[in-house]
Design a protein around this nucleic acid. Structure first.
Length: 853
DNA sequence: AACTGTGGCCTGTGAC
DNA sequence: GTCACAGGCCACAGTT
């Protein structure tokens, strides 16, 4: 009998779950997760019941089976001895599906098996390898189960007489009424979709009971973290912080001599032996429906499981199951916040790119304004310090989910509902998988065959435009050359969700682009040779389009509606951010080879429509008498437009392009050099908006950054053209003082350090850039280095040196003056100022002045 | 063989 | 996803 979890690859694990079975009648409970129980050979669901605040397991009662699809007939398949004799093979069922690529019905055969392994196998085995071509065979079994039963993770269900019943949440009448009014003009198909989306998004999210866990491990070598797959060292501390008030630190005190530390507002407990300590940890892990960690997949929970095995815990007493990359719990859900915050879409679109490094300290300090405690080596801490340090980590881990009224938990649940993925998966996987799941769900719901990647490429082919950047696949957005100089009263207009609007308006989808109907060939995407179907509504167009409309015309206005309570506004803001994450990724995925529905002409057409919208808008502005100073992808910077002119332009875009334009920002004035993606704008309140300028980049030495910040401070104080001479004086003083500091070597070495991230392993660099040189010097001194590490180096006379190995005398001061110059020049150019003059260097004799002498 | 100027390329960091 | 920048690396060609 198998007791241990058998690994099936990422995420799919033949888990033997533990915990409470759902009673025959379970009140309203939220579906959070699903899996496959290898022993029972059944799919199971994890339901969170908000009154008892517990997880209940519910097992499939419909005899749902794993399957994949073949285009061969049952008769043909029956001749395949390898298939018929395959262990676990059960039966064949003929079925009709819709082949969207061909636009016609297709007869397929469902191949049913007793367990998911028989379909997918391990390595190169499984039915899908025996039969050659197969469809829908790479979908995780529990995900298949969710699709086939039309389940929506994150939504409420009930168990009645042992059966799972949907708790049909209906939109309140007044909400439905207002929505109908707003979307009255939309196509019926869109309206239906939007109503269903709104039902999922509007349904309240219950408070989720959860505990954050953090462990500390003894380190025999200072600062060397023990390998969690070996777990050689004892667990010396663990802390819990929960939503129901638990704040507890468990400490290992084998000597039994120390005095129990007192930590404010927390309970501290000693354990004389590690086994008892771990047993207590497991008791808490089993008790909570949701366990939060920061990097628990790769460290805390992984270590605990291994450590328990080392201490000869019987497997069934370890509540942790281990996949190749992820670590799960038998009873509840494990959510690794490290993975969630690492997700680039979450980082950029949900948190505005506020945190840059993916460690707990950086994320927590920018998101909730709380830092880790600073310590040296773990093993050098007193029990008192250890307890405080460990508690703080659990505390900030918990608070990352609790700030702003549980914003992050709600965001996760909303993402779960949109994507149809389990909460564990949605917090671990990238946005392309979310979109894939959403698309798969919609295919299954409609009875469409989910195409394989090769099917789409074969039918639709590649791209026809040439990218500007070598090595890219197709032509992207337009960036206009800015008009250099200082411009007062600049208004920036942007398209509301340009690419999703393009996808919606032009009916873009993998099945509608380059369709087979001769009569559609005239509907050509401007700037390409691709045409789009005029007969059928594209699936992507419908999904993305309806989500877009809902965000732009419903949730975004609501999140800013002063007539709503603050709580409501926050919730609407979460929803609109979640939608934004989806929408922003929706175009890119179709241009990513790794995406299973990769469709180059689709991505290419989307970008082409974006270019068309931009060029048309610039033309229209010109005709309205507005000068366009700059524009990038979906925005235009207008020079002193009147309100009437703006209104006309917005109206034009709505009528001619079918896209809403919003006033994104208004600058009191803006400074442009001739560089694209580089400018400084000053808002009416004097705050400064900086884009692309070198002085803002994260790798720039603090001394230079500081100087740049002061420069922007001076510019922020400029109210009108009359203030400019004064500002110039201030800038002159600033440059002089920084220059003098450099020349006088009046600095700390750290202030001059460039901090550049290692983008790959040291061995795989083709060239030898500066940060790699410095990294190699560190490695020679025994530092271990990894992808993502930040290398700090200073530029010295003899080349670069890691900041740790350099001294102040080494510094190549002239080089730093050069950096200062090029950084300042990006703005001084536009102000007609000359850096050389500011630092007392004679003006270069230009050829011109030479001849006119 | 050493030096220098050039231009393509690599790398990291952003904008959108 | 593509576009754009800074800044340095590096191969190459031509010169001394």
């Amino acid at each position: 009998m198998r007791v241990a979890a058998v690994e099936l690859g990422d995420g799919e694990e033949e888990i033997i779950p533990g915990g409470r079975m759902a009673p025959d009648d379970l009140p309203t409970s939220y579906l959070l997760s699903a899996g496959y129980d290898g022993k029972a050979e059944k799919a199971f669901l994890r339901l969170y019941e908000p009154t008892s605040q517990q997880i209940y397991l519910w097992y499939d009662d419909t005899n749902h089976l794993p399957y994949c699809i073949s285009k061969a007939s049952p008769e043909e398949l029956r001749k395949n001895k390898g298939l018929v004799g395959y262990p676990g093979f059960l039966s064949l069922e003929e079925e009709e599906k819709f082949d969207a690529l061909r636009g016609e019905a297709v007869k397929v055969t469902k191949i049913l098996a007793s367990n998911p392994l028989a379909i997918g196998g391990q390595g190169r085995s499984g039915i899908r390898y025996v039969i050659g071509d197969s469809w829908e065979s790479h979908i995780r079994y529990y995900q298949n189960y969710i699709y086939d039963r039309g389940l929506v993770p994150g939504m409420p269900y009930r168990v009645e007489g042992g059966r799972l019943v949907e708790e049909k949440y209906a939109l309140p009448d007044d909400v439905a009424g207002r929505m109908d009014a707003i979307f009255a003009e939309e196509e019926a198909e869109f309206r239906e979709h939007m109503r269903e989306w709104a039902r999922l998004l509007q349904c309240p999210v219950p408070p989720l009971r959860r505990v954050a866990v953090d462990i500390e491990v003894y380190t025999s070598v200072a600062n060397r973290i023990p390998n969690p797959d070996e777990a050689p060292e004892p667990v010396i501390a663990v802390s819990f912080v929960s939503s129901d008030g638990l704040r507890r630190v468990l400490l290992l005190n084998e000597a039994g001599e120390a005095e129990l530390p007192v930590v404010d507002g927390a309970e501290v407990v000693f354990h004389a032996d590690e086994r008892a300590l771990i047993e207590e940890i497991f008791r808490v892990l089993n008790e909570y429906p949701i366990v939060l960690t920061f990097n628990g997949d790769n460290f805390d929970l992984r270590y605990l499981r291994r450590r328990a095995q080392n201490l000869a815990f019987p497997l069934e007493e370890i509540p942790i199951t281990q996949g190749r990359r992820f670590t799960f719990l038998r009873n509840g859900l494990h959510i690794d916040l490290y993975r969630f915050f690492l997700n680039r879409s979450i980082q950029i679109y949900a948190f505005g790119n506020r945190y840059r490094e993916n460690n707990l300290d950086d994320v927590a300090s920018t998101v909730i304004g709380k830092r880790k405690l600073e310590i040296g080596d773990i093993s050098g801490l007193s029990l008192d310090e250890l307890a405080r340090y460990c508690l703080r980590d659990a505390e900030i881990t918990y608070e990352l989910t609790s700030f702003s009224d549980d914003l992050v938990m709600k965001l996760m649940v909303i993402l779960t509902r949109i994507s149809r993925m389990t909460m564990e998966d949605v917090t671990r996987m990238g946005v392309s998988r979310w979109i894939l799941a959403l698309m798969e769900h919609e295919h299954r719901r409609r009875g469409w065959l989910i195409p394989n990647a090769e099917d789409i490429i074969e039918a639709k082919g590649g791209t026809t435009t040439e990218a500007i950047i070598k090595g890219k696949k197709y032509l992207g957005a337009i960036v206009r050359s800015p008009k250099p100089g200082v411009h007062f009263d600049v208004t920036v207009l942007d398209f509301a969700s340009l690419y999703p609007s393009a996808i919606r308006n032009w009916n873009l989808s993998y099945e509608t682009i380059l369709c087979g109907h001769p009569e559609c060939r005239g509907k050509v995407v401007p700037g390409t040779s691709h045409w789009v179907c005029t007969r059928r509504r594209g699936l992507t167009s419908l999904l993305i389009g309806s989500l877009r409309d809902l965000r732009v015309r419903w949730y975004k206005p609501l999140s800013r509606d002063p007539g709503r309570s603050e709580g409501e506004r926050t919730f609407y803001d979460i929803v609109q951010s979640a939608l934004k994450v989806f929408l922003n990724a929706s175009y890119g995925v179709f241009g990513a080879e790794s995406f299973p529905l990769y469709c180059p002409p689709l991505a290419e057409s989307t970008a082409a429509i974006g270019r068309y919208a931009m060029t048309q808008t610039v033309d229209a502005s010109r005709k309205l008498g507005i000068e366009v100073i700059y524009g990038d992808t979906d925005s235009v910077f207008l020079d002193q437009p009147t309100t009437a002119q703006i209104q006309k332009l917005v109206g034009w875009a709505e009528d001619e392009l079918g896209i809403e334009m919003d006033v994104d920002k208004v600058y009191r004035y803006a400074i442009f050099s001739k560089r694209k993606k580089n400018y400084l704008g000053v808002y009416p309140d004097g705050s400064v908006d900086i884009k692309g300028l070198t002085g803002k980049k994260r790798h720039i030495p603090p001394l230079l950054k500081e100087a740049f910040l002061r420069l922007t401070g001076i510019l922020g104080g400029v109210k009108s053209i009359e203030d400019i001479p004064g500002a110039k004086e201030d800038i002159r003083d600033l440059v002089e003082s920084v220059h003098a500091r450099l020349q006088g070597r009046d600095f700390d070495l750290n202030e001059l350090a460039f901090s550049v991230m290692l983008g790959r392993k040291l061995s795989s660099y083709e060239t030898n850039p500066q940060h790699v040189k410095a990294a190699k010097m560190l490695r020679e001194r025994g530092r271990t280095l990894d992808i993502g590490d930040i290398i700090s180096y200073v530029v010295t006379q003899g080349g670069v040196k890691p900041v740790q190995l350099a001294s102040r005398r080494d510094v190549d001061v002239d080089k730093y003056v050069e950096y200062l110059e090029s950084m300042f020049e990006q703005l001084l150019d536009a102000l007609d100022m000359d850096f050389d003059e500011l630092v007392g260097r004679p003006r270069e004799t230009t050829l011109d002045s030479f001849f006119t002498r």
